[in-house]
């Protein structure tokens, strides 16, 4: 009995502690959300704060963005670019990486161990090291300042390959023979039998790669030169300067890049968590 009440006390203490941490985690986003409803002049005068002042709060910043006037005419270009790049990148990345991972898992062939070692090696070396030669290469390949310049160099990604390999190893090999007897080609077996079996892996990887692409900054900021081709992170980062007079777009625009992700997160929480912690899968 005594232990039960003690446990209840501990339980309440823990909930309070985590409540405090949850407030800390959500507080910065909440502050940005509030600021997005206030005129930028407030921000310049008082700084970012969480005063609920309904007299100054309006939807004006959002109206500015949707009006397409002032500094906002590019915002929806950026939004569209980010969407197109994210969709295309995620689709190609999943298709190609799952093929590679599947190939490494399901077939015995010469050089398999070597290729897998290369995958691990690529995973261990940060891409930041090779951005300069990669930039020169993109110029030579004529993919600079284009969405292909952003997508192609990283579309066959080592982490998804590794993940799909680990997943495919657990798939029943008998299905392959059954498929062969039914006259499927090797690619037919992959697309008709194995891809449906790997759907959970695709779910986790979709989240990981889409979020990566949506939020990616360093490489796109190097590849993209013209304003109308920018993605959201590049466009927004350019608005953040003391001389910028587009803080309306910056504040409301930042909120509008997070909202779709938060909505998706509420619906697909499990996939998000599986996708973003995928690096911890044991090898």
């Amino acid at each position: 009995m005594a232990e039960k009440t003690r446990n209840k006390g501990f339980s309440l203490l823990l909930v309070l502690l985590f409540g405090a941490f949850a407030v800390l985690a959500l507080f910065p986003l909440f502050a940005l959300l509030l600021a997005s409803f206030k005129p930028a002049s407030e921000l310049f005068r008082y700084g970012l704060n969480v005063r609920l002042d309904f007299d100054v709060m309006t939807l004006a910043n959002y109206k500015t963005i949707f009006s397409g006037k002032g500094g906002s005419q590019n915002y929806f270009h950026w939004y569209r670019n980010s969407l197109v790049i994210t969709l295309l990148f995620t689709f190609l990345c999943l298709l190609l990486s799952s093929m590679v991972g599947y190939g490494l898992a399901m077939y015995r062939f010469k050089g398999r161990a070597f290729v897998f070692t290369l995958v691990l090696a690529v995973m261990m070396i940060p891409v930041e090291i090779i951005i300069l030669p990669l930039y020169k290469l993109s110029i030579d390949l004529l993919i600079i300042n284009s969405i292909w310049g952003i997508i192609l160099p990283f579309v066959v990604a080592p982490l998804p390959i590794f993940f799909f390999r680990q997943f495919a190893i657990g798939l029943p090999k008998d299905f392959m023979d059954a498929g062969r007897i039914d006259g499927c080609t090797e690619f037919g077996i992959f697309f008709r039998i194995m891809v449906p079996l790997m759907l959970p892996a695709y779910g986790a990887m979709t989240i990981l790669q889409a979020l990566f692409s949506w939020n990616n900054f360093l490489w796109p900021v190097i590849v993209l030169r013209s304003t109308e081709k920018f993605t959201l992170p590049i466009g927004l980062s350019g608005l953040l300067s003391p001389t910028s007079n587009n803080y309306e777009v910056l504040l409301a625009g930042s909120i509008m890049t997070i909202i779709p992700i938060l909505v998706l997160f509420l619906f697909f929480q499990r996939f998000f968590i599986a996708g973003l912690t995928v690096g911890g899968v044991k090898g």
């Binding site: 985690a25 910065p28 986003l29 700084g47 704060n49 949506w214 939020n215 980062s237 953040l240 998000f272």
Partner: peptide
Amino acid sequence: ASLFIPALTSIVVAGIIFRLIFSELDGAI
């Protein structure tokens, strides 16, 4: 879920927020 949400934010947006939080203005957070 609530502790995980910051991980969904791009570093660019996170940077925007924290630059404003750590602004030198007296009223900043």
